[in-house]
């Protein structure tokens, strides 16, 4: 017997999926508008190489969400980058095995 395929290959795939579904269900954007934007990102990424449907699919998903939330004035890119850097610092200074959190 083979093990069942994981639904999401990586935890962050699940997180970006859930965040997008949540924001749609909260009424911040229509799913059809999301699909149009996401399809455009996939098409752009797929010009230079064949996308495998795994990590690169969710990289395109995340890029679409970041741009959409910026356009909606919900998440400014400079603020997102600032928090990303803070999370990186937090991981690097937190002892291995301890929970990681922002100050």
């Amino acid at each position: 017997m083979t093990a069942p395929e994981p639904v999401f290959e990586a935890p962050w795939h699940a997180q970006v999926f859930a965040l997008t579904v949540y924001l749609n269900e909260a009424g911040h954007f229509k799913w059809s508008d999301w699909a149009t934007r996401f399809g455009a990102t996939l098409a752009r990424h797929g010009v230079s190489r064949d996308l495998n449907g795994g990590d690169d699919y969710f990289v395109a998903w995340l890029e679409t969400l970041e741009a959409y939330l910026s356009d909606l004035d919900m998440a400014a890119p400079d603020m997102v980058e600032d928090l990303r850097a803070k999370w990186e610092t937090a991981y690097l200074k937190t002892p291995h095995g301890a929970p990681v959190s922002l100050d």
């Binding site: 997180q15 965040l19 995340l62 928090l83 991981y91 937190t94 002892p95 291995h96 922002l102």
Partner: peptide, 28 residues
Amino acid sequence: DHAHSLLPPDPALRIKALETLLTQKGLI
């Protein structure tokens, strides 16, 4: 051995940043 926590891949940090910002704003 790792002295510090394993650094997640860049997209994982970016999604954490989005979640943090939207949580701080009370949107999620």
